[in-house]
Design a protein around this nucleic acid. Structure first.
Length: 918
RNA sequence: GGGCGAUUAGCUCAGGGGUAGAGCGCCACGUUGACAUCGUGGAGGUCGCAGGUUCGAAACCCGCAUCGCCCACCA
């Protein structure tokens, strides 16, 4: 074995072997276990969020596979309609072309081509993480099979009246030229203005003042609303306004929506371009005047002078014109929420168009019930509140998008604009009895990407065909995802799963946090603070990192700043940490909080942990060569480490059951480093290296070394698959375990052996003994190599027996030169002291130890214990405590007081002795 | 406006009615036969603030402050 762990040499070779041998495919006839991967964008690259989610899912998958489950982790990718289309359009633009130049068919071909080019990338990156997904079942949301599922769902929902087409106000993205769902619109506060305009009354006498943040929309006004009980305006309701510039007569209406306290209490109504106005407009039969084109430039319904103007240009023009007319009352600075498309960042326009909708209420009701009844459990539980909050206020889902990349809507129109929905044109003709003489053309629109994602838990398993896979793996066990897509995806899968499979798509939803940069900022390209999981695995030099972070920037002016920050934060680039260290870090950070700051210190620490494990394995291998099956005897240390291992195994199982992977990793780390390496390996050395220990004892220790290591590797494997496989291949045979791969070995279970408490207590005693000496050594500046004579005072029979029995350990590990007993009537020598209960360890000074230093040390210890004693005594002096606290607690407190007093007495006595010496 | 969360060691975070924890960092010492990617010892905290419940609160309850997120939204 290499002297240190070199991940790069191992990982890719090991993964290739797993994949070639088909280890990721479900096997056996154990209980079913299934996780559906949240499909990443097919043209995307792996980011920290994927790394995190994949790590959690892989740990769960490997754990259950090792527990004997017939396990499927279903992989695949999403066509990501808007995102992908935008990327390809940008590529085209760089070539000086637009998608319109190409035409729909050519463009879609081009996207497929791009998908083929880049589509494998994220899958390759997922492999680098060690993800044990079943690649043979990899799916893509636009595969033929999944597309069939989409059509099936659409047709069935339509036939049931749960999908309808309607002309309504939608969120329109004037840059991408498509409708968006409510979820794809992000509102943020931006600074603007509030304009107050005078609208003259048609009677010729006076005016009303209305306020608006969007002056240009006044060209589409079809009313002015006041509150019904507003006495200032009551007499005007029913009268008319002459809309300035346009000259249209529009009514003054009364509607309770209006807040009389705000502004003047008069609101201009633009029902075709504002969601609230639309509602009111519908109630009052106001005219819906669409003043925009698809680009959000003014159309021909407005006065000629304004036609063709962009909305923001029009805003200035309208304001100027009203001012010229003397109708501008005032302008105030005003901060308001501006809705923008989540992809294009263009200001979204409420726009009247024909779109397809899913009638959501009938689907939402059982989906709410599924969570309320506990059929689906959120982890952490809190997220169910978020889910309910949204589901109770859910609106019909706009599913049509005016894009070219996606699932084309299976609807056809005849020349009279009648709609027919079916699987394909032939089906439509059959279904509706339409002859070949009638021309049909298919709807131009595609479906929202999330429509196909919503079917993922069953479409990937072959639905609507009745497949074995569906029987096997629906419903899945757990969905692992970030909270940002609970609405987009989780809720919709639940609705569709219940609707079409008659059962929920998964039993549990594990929601994890967002990975943030070290300073708590969101990682983003424009901030230049992105960490690429692959760079953490492979390492990257500074120049490459700078180039990567500053290239392809949307805003070039940020580049120098990013370069500077990057050079400061990573003067030497990023080290190679390996996939195991990265995964372990993710798992260790998977706490219940919302966001996770990625800490480079942690990954470095866990890389060291890999190295620690590697070297522990080297030690074990060096010492177990030629281990035979002869008779074995076990030392107390052997029995102790097995008991500790059992405890760790049990804890890890419990933590998995609660999805507390952070605690699971912590348990393993603690056991591996601080029990197995720090103590057991050290305690094994005297046995293996000593001539006195018999062959049987040595064999027992060697056997224990290799068996504990082999078990530990299996326990750790879900988190660190590569290094554990690599070591296991060399260790397994010696441990008497045979198999092709650690992946398919059983997960460790506690041995079920009753704990040998005598052995465990002995070793704890030995540890305390050695720790006491080390403390003296450390604080007294005694060279660690210097063997110390130790005098035992107040040694019980048990102490004496232990000292004899474990003399070898004390000598070799504790560097004890000799152990002698002090008789009750003997004067103790001047010595440094450590306490082990009643037992006093004395290290005679003999010029070794500085008296003043030891006095200072004892004084410090006494102070510390006195503080504790005072507190405990305070409690016991309190009658209320003594009378009310449980007896066990009181008793415990009394015991502590006795211990403290004894300790202080012993230390004080020792201090006295040193004082007399002076 | 409604909802959710956070506030614990220098940093990143666990914990949770009865003794304040980890990793990293820091200080000192160390070429001990796995490992200097290491070992040994050490320093370091009034658990955001103020009330309440309790014999006992860092933990439970109420309020406040600061930070963050989600949803809705007054033109």
């Amino acid at each position: 074995m290499e002297k240190s762990y070199q991940p790069s040499e191992i990982e890719q070779r090991v993964y290739a072997r797993w994949e070639e041998n088909g280890y990721f495919t479900p096997r056996g006839d154990g209980e079913r276990y299934c996780i559906m991967i949240p499909p990443p964008n097919v043209t995307g690259t792996l980011h920290m969020g994927h790394g995190f989610g994949d790590t959690i899912q892989d740990a769960l998958t490997r754990y259950h596979r090792m527990r004997g489950c017939r396990t499927l982790w279903q992989p695949g990718t999403d066509h990501a309609g808007i995102a992908t289309q935008m990327v390809v359009e940008r590529l085209l633009n760089a070539e000086g072309q637009s998608r319109r130049d190409l035409g729909r068919e050519k463009f879609v071909e081009r996207v497929w081509q791009w998908k083929e080019e880049s589509g494998g990338k994220i899958s390759q990156q997922t492999r680098r993480l060690g993800a044990s997904v079943d690649w043979t079942r990899e799916r893509f949301t636009m595969d033929e099979g999944l597309s069939a599922a989409v059509r099936e769902v659409f047709v069935r929902l339509y036939d049931e009246g749960l999908i309808y087409r309607g002309k309504r106000l939608v969120n329109w993205d004037p840059v991408l030229h498509t409708a968006l769902s409510d979820l794809e619109v992000l509102s943020a506060e931006e600074e603007g203005h509030l304009w107050h305009f005078r609208y003259p009354l048609a009677s010729g006498e006076g005016h009303l003042v209305v306020a608006t943040t969007r002056p240009e929309t006044m060209l589409g006004d079809s009313g002015v609303a006041v509150h019904p009980e507003d006495e200032r305006y009551g007499h005007l309701v029913g009268q008319e306004i002459v809309l300035p510039i346009v000259g249209r007569r529009i009514p003054i209406i009364a509607d309770p929506y209006v807040d009389p306290e705000f502004g003047t209490g008069c609101v201009k109504m633009t029902p075709a371009h504002d969601f609230n106005d639309y509602e009111i407009g519908v109630r009052h039969g106001l005219e819906m005047i669409n003043i925009f084109t698809d680009d959000a430039t003014l159309n021909d319904t407005v006065p000629e002078a304004f036609r063709g103007l962009d909305r923001f240009v029009a805003r200035k023009a309208v304001t100027a014109e009203l001012e010229r007319l003397g109708l501008l009352d005032k302008v105030e600075p005003y901060t308001t929420k501006i809705p923008r498309g989540d992809r294009s960042h263009a200001v979204v326009e409420p726009y009247l168009t024909d779109q397809w909708y899913v009638k959501i209420e009938p689907l939402a009701t059982p989906a709410i019930e599924a969570v309320a009844s506990g059929k689906i459990r959120f982890v952490p539980e809190n997220w169910s509140k978020t889910y309910f909050e949204w589901m109770h206020n859910i609106q019909d889902w706009c599913i049509s998008r005016q894009l070219w990349w996606g699932h084309r809507i299976p609807a056809w129109y005849d020349d009279d604009a009648n709609v027919y929905v079916g699987y394909d044109e032939a089906d439509v003709r059959r279904k509706y009895g339409i002859g070949d003489d009638v021309a049909l053309r298919q709807d131009e629109d595609v479906l929202d990407t999330w429509f196909s994602s919503a079917l993922w838990p069953f479409s990937t398993l072959g639905w609507p065909e009745k497949t074995e896979a569906l029987d096997d793996f629906y419903p899945g066990n757990v969905l692992v995802t970030g909270f940002d897509i609970i609405f987009f995806w989780v809720a919709r899968m639940i609705m569709m799963g219940i609707k079409f499979m008659g059962d929920v798509p998964f039993r549990e939803v594990y929601i994890h946090g967002l990975i943030r940069a070290e300073d708590g900022q969101k990682m983003s390209k424009s901030k230049g603070n992105i960490l690429d999981p692959l760079d953490l695995i492979d390492g990257i030099d500074l120049e490459s990192l700078v180039a990567k972070r500053t290239s392809g920037m949307m805003q070039d002016h940020l580049a120098p700043r990013i370069e500077e920050d990057t050079r400061r934060q990573f003067p030497d680039g990023i080290d190679q940490f390996g996939a195991d260290a990265l995964r372990f870090t993710f798992a260790a950070l998977a706490t219940t909080g919302r966001d996770i700051r990625f800490d480079l210190g942690r990954i470095e620490g866990y890389k060291n942990f890999c190295n620690k494990l590697w070297n522990a394995a080297r030690y074990v291998l060096m010492n177990t060569e030629g281990l035979d099956g002869g008779p074995s005897e076990f030392t107390a240390a052997d029995l102790w480490i097995k008991a500790r291992l059992d405890a760790a195994v049990n804890a890890v199982h419990a933590h998995f059951a609660n999805y507390r992977l952070d605690l699971a990793t912590q348990t393993i780390y603690e056991f591996t480093w601080h029990e197995f390496c720090d103590w057991y390996l050290e305690l094994s050395k005297p046995v293996l290296q000593s001539e006195e220990a018999g062959a049987a004892l040595q064999r027992g220790t060697r056997r224990t070394l290799v068996e504990v290591l082999e078990t530990l590797l299996r326990l750790l494997h879900p988190f660190m698959p590569f290094i554990t496989e690599e070591i296991w291949q060399q260790v397994a045979d010696r441990a008497g375990v045979h198999g092709e791969t650690i992946m398919l070995q059983p997960c460790p279970e506690a041995s079920g052996n009753t704990v040998d408490t005598e052995a465990v207590d002995d070793i704890e005693w030995v540890k305390q003994f050695i720790l006491g000496l080390r403390q003296i050594r450390g604080e007294m500046d005694i060279p660690p190599g210097k063997a110390l004579p130790v005098v035992l005072q107040h040694a019980s029979e048990l102490d004496q027996r232990r000292a004899e029995r474990h003399a070898l350990l004390l000598t070799r590990v504790g560097r004890v030169e000799s152990v002698s007993l002090l008789g009750d009537d003997e004067q103790p020598p001047a010595a440094a002291t450590a306490l082990l209960g009643d037992l006093r360890l004395l290290v005679p000074m003999k010029g070794l130890i500085d008296v003043d230093a030891e006095k200072a040390r004892l004084g410090k210890q006494i102070d510390k214990v006195r503080g504790e004693l005072a507190r405990a005594n305070g409690k016991l002096a309190n009658d209320k405590f003594v009378n009310n606290a449980p007896a066990a607690v009181v008793e415990q407190e009394q015991t502590r007081v006795r211990d403290f007093e004894r300790t202080i007495a012993q230390l004080a006595e020792q201090l006295d002795k040193l004082d007399q010496l002076a």
